[in-house]
Write a protein that binds this DNA or RNA. Structure first.
Length: 813
DNA sequence: CACCCAACAATTTTT
DNA sequence: TTGTTGGGTG
């Protein structure tokens, strides 16, 4: 496609309001002002890319080069989208309203719902999350006895997911793969059945959302033209993490519109042949932060951008506005070990700042205790908990961290992990809503048919399913005719009642009804009331069920909040939002707590103080990456992402032994630690120190001495194999007995808090206490009330700690 | 049909 | 170590 205006005419644009370019450095400014078909902004970590993007958008609007509705901005998470919307809003006011600022997934859902009739789906089609896909796949794998050929549920899901990310449908797969291989044949059959089931349930999985949109555009050029005409300026953030399907989507959207698809009344300036020129494309990314290859992200999308979009302009942003030079030096040194990359060097004018803090614990709990102590110390210097974050490679690492943080009364929040929406009870309620929004979604109806318990077991379920198939109706429709299936009275009634409850709920959210649709939350509350979901949970007297009931109530609150934010919203939109929330989305900046998350979720975020934990061989780099091509380089980028999140103070910690699946094994410092220049790290306790003083006692090992004076190995008494003497306390429950305090403080084998309840313990300043791990000490202060009482204790050997009295293994002495 | 227990497997990162 | 699945019993 011809570029309409030659480069030197297009740039610079003098008419962009000064406040949009003032204060930008030269490359930033150029990135805001450049005009042309394609622009690649290579934005190093912390180089102000969000600022550039928002100002660029605002510039397009302010100069009247574009209407708000002609802007499509794609981000990686909803949170990033919300932030961008907010910041563009600050620059422009109400004009943001008409823009599409969203994730790939939400943008695609929006398109798919609009065009649903064109491919025979209801507008309220269901979106299956990974758990739903898994459940579906389980059934298929089982029915085909695929496991006997070594095709497990995760393998099958992975294969299909990569197919979709590559835009390969079952037929395409059949063409590409070696069908003489029975295993491949089996996977093809699984893929076929899986897609058939999705289709039958009128559902899409996550990967479908992108792939089906691309296929829709390719099959219906007129639909594609609609969006090609509409979006004149497309901006994509985190471009290095796009997969092939996402890339193809962008390509579809940036095609010129052929003359025959141009309506007569268009206000867009046409090319000479009557076609509409392609939309302008701006992508922002950093190949050093590409960490999603495992789910199909193709780094070549960014490295070959200039080839894909001839005439593209590239701008490099290397000045960092986030971190100290020390942190950047570490980051640069680490990433420099990846060859085959465009060299980029982050720099700052902010000064070198504090040294990186290193700590090698003897166990994961020891490591966690260091984290807890540091958090307290730093909080004491006036840093808010909000501004601190703890990162780890695998979710399994949270256990030890949580145990210690709870005990140490550090307020924290887990980001991601077992998410709220993945809890069984919440999924149940969502399944109710999906059943209502999409009656064809058999999977969801089946999920809730006996939840809460109604006495409808697997046998009855199969009967209904068969009846539905025989009579050519949906599963949900069949529920309305329980009399025809030869059930006993009890089951008949139960089924009829469920059908009626669903029908009533469905009717209440129909906008066509005389009194109008009822808000989502109201409908939901009535439904829960009618089926007695919460009531039945509360009745069991089981505290876990109580917690479940709380979660359901919390979900109702989510619905209420949604209604408040979206007065004209509806059930389908609510479900869309629920289906597409990501881990990073629920970070609340005001919550006043420390954030815990995986290195992956940390991408795009920043904190004053950062802890990267578990910097060990086998963990970071993770052992699974070893035999994947490019695996090590990706792990390194992950570490790099973690480092560059820190603004002022970075901690790198590890444990010299780690317990996994109940087995404790020694661990080695990560090779990445060697890549950080020595002089940048201040080891509070180095791996060597741990090894040379293996039998430390009391608080000697960490904490206490490690902060000042230190005396490693000084009085380490031989004898006692680490935890052998701990055999005691384990299950014994109450009062946590007296365990010899001289033990070294490995926490392995330690009970976690649930078994004991110290809430009755009364402490006052000056009391002498004994702690299972820290030995004896003097209470300095007691803060808080009730179950949240915190004791600040000066331990004789372990230093000063804050402890949550309720669950600390603490007693008076 | 619901519940309990025993055996068993599985453990990277996530839109 | 944890969670899940399967079989057997009430």
């Amino acid at each position: 496609m011809e570029i309409l205006l030659p480069d030197d005419h297009a740039y610079p644009r003098p008419d962009i309001p000064a406040q949009l370019v003032d204060g930008l450095n030269p490359p930033q400014r150029e990135a805001v002002e450049y005009r042309g078909d394609a622009l690649l902004i290579v934005a190093g970590a912390g180089s102000g890319k969000t600022r550039v993007l928002t100002h660029r958008i605002a510039g397009l609007i302010a100069t009247r080069e574009a209407w708000p509705s002609q802007i499509l901005a794609i981000t990686f998470t909803n949170k990033a989208a919300a932030e961008m919307r907010e910041r563009v809003g600050q620059l422009l006011g109400d004009s943001v309203e008409g823009m599409w600022i969203s994730t790939f997934h939400s943008a695609c859902v929006r398109i798919l719902r609009r065009e649903a009739e064109r491919f025979g789906y209801p507008q309220g089609f269901t979106i299956y999350d990974s758990a739903d896909s898994k459940a579906l796949m389980k059934r298929i794998v089982k029915s085909l006895e695929a496991e006997s050929l070594g095709v497990t549920v995760p393998t099958a899901l992975n294969r299909i997911s990569s197919c979709k990310n590559e835009l390969i449908d079952p037929d395409g797969f059949a063409r590409k793969t070696d069908l003489t291989n029975p295993r491949e044949q089996l996977i093809l059959e699984i893929y076929r059945q899986y897609q058939r089931e999705l289709q039958r349930n009128r559902a899409f999985d996550f990967d479908d959302l992108i792939a089906q949109t691309v296929w829709l555009f390719r099959a219906h050029p007129d639909i594609a033209a609609l969006y090609q005409r509409r979006f004149r300026h497309i901006l994509v953030d985190e471009y290095q993490d796009t997969n092939h399907a996402q890339y193809a989507l962008i390509r579809e959207l940036t095609r010129p519109v052929a003359a025959e698809n141009v309506p007569l009344d268009t206000r867009i300036q046409l090319a000479a042949d009557g076609s509409i020129p392609p939309a302008s494309l701006t992508v922002v990314g950093d190949s050093d932060q590409s960490i999603y290859a495992f789910r199909g992200a193709d780094i070549r999308n960014i490295t070959e951008f200039e080839r894909d979009f001839p005439g593209a302009k590239t701008i490099l942003l290397e000045q960092n506005y986030r971190s100290t030079q020390t942190i950047l030096d570490a980051a640069n040194a680490v990433i420099g070990n990846n060859f085959d990359r465009r060299v980029k060097n982050l720099w700052t004018s902010a000064g070198s700042g504090k040294q990186i803090q290193g700590y090698a614990g003897r166990s994961a709990h020891d490591e966690a205790q260091f984290v807890a102590d540091e958090i307290h110390r730093i909080h004491g210097t006036g840093v808010s908990y909000n501004d601190m974050a703890v990162f780890y490679r695998t979710n399994a690492q949270t256990r030890a961290l949580e145990e210690i943080l709870i005990r140490a009364a550090v307020p924290y929040r887990l980001i991601g992990g077992t998410k709220f929406y993945e809890r069984a009870e919440v999924k149940d309620i969502v399944a109710y809503l999906m059943s209502i929004a999409n009656p064809n979604d058999e999977l969801s109806v089946r999920r809730i048919i006996n939840s809460p318990k109604r006495g409808i077991g697997p046998a009855s379920e199969t009967t209904i399913s068969n009846y539905a198939a025989d009579n050519d109706m949906s599963f949900r429709e069949a529920l309305r005719q329980p009399d025809a299936m030869g059930f006993g009275l009890k089951i008949r009634n139960a089924v009829a009642e469920l059908a009626a409850a669903l029908d009533e709920a469905e009717a209440s959210c129909n906008p066509q009804r005389p009194t109008g649709a009822v808000p989502v939350a109201t409908m939901l509350e009535r439904l829960i009331e009618r089926i007695g979901y919460i009531e039945k949970l509360r009745a069991t007297g089981n505290p876990q069920d109580d917690a479940r009931a709380d979660n359901v109530e919390e979900f109702v609150n989510v619905a209420k909040e949604y209604d408040k934010q979206n007065p004209s919203g509806n059930l389908v939109e609510f479900l869309t939002e629920v289906a597409l929330v990501a881990a990073a989305d629920d970070i609340d900046d005001e919550s006043g707590v420390v954030s815990l998350m995986t290195l992956h979720t940390a991408k795009g975020l920043e904190y004053d103080t950062v802890f990267i934990t578990g910097v060990e061989e086998q963990l970071l780099p993770h052992k699974m990456s070893a035999d994947e091509p490019g695996g090590l380089a990706e792990e390194r980028r992950l570490f790099y992402v973690g480092i560059t999140r820190a603004r002022k103070l970075l901690h790198l910690t590890m444990a010299m032994s780690r317990t996994q699946y109940g087995e404790t094994a020694p661990s080695l410092p990560s090779r990445f630690l060697d890549e950080v220049p020595n002089e940048l790290i201040d080891w509070k306790q180095s791996p060597a120190e741990v090894l040379s003083a293996p039998m430390m006692r009391g608080g000697g090992g960490y904490g206490g001495s490690s902060y000042g004076n230190s005396s490693y190995g000084g009085y380490g008494r031989g004898g006692g194999r680490g935890n052998s003497e701990l055999g005691v306390a384990r299950g014994s429950g109450l009062k946590q007995s007296f365990k010899p305090t001289r033990g070294n403080r490995t926490f392995d084998n330690q009970v976690t808090g649930k078994v004991k309840d110290n809430s009755a313990l009364e402490l006052a300043s000056g009391d002498r206490v004994r702690h299972t791990d820290f030995g004896e000490g003097t209470v300095r202060a007691v803060l808080g009330v009730g179950t949240k009482r915190i004791a600040e204790v000066d331990f004789d050997t372990a230093g000063r700690k804050k402890l949550l009295i309720k669950i600390a293994p603490l007693e008076k002495c």
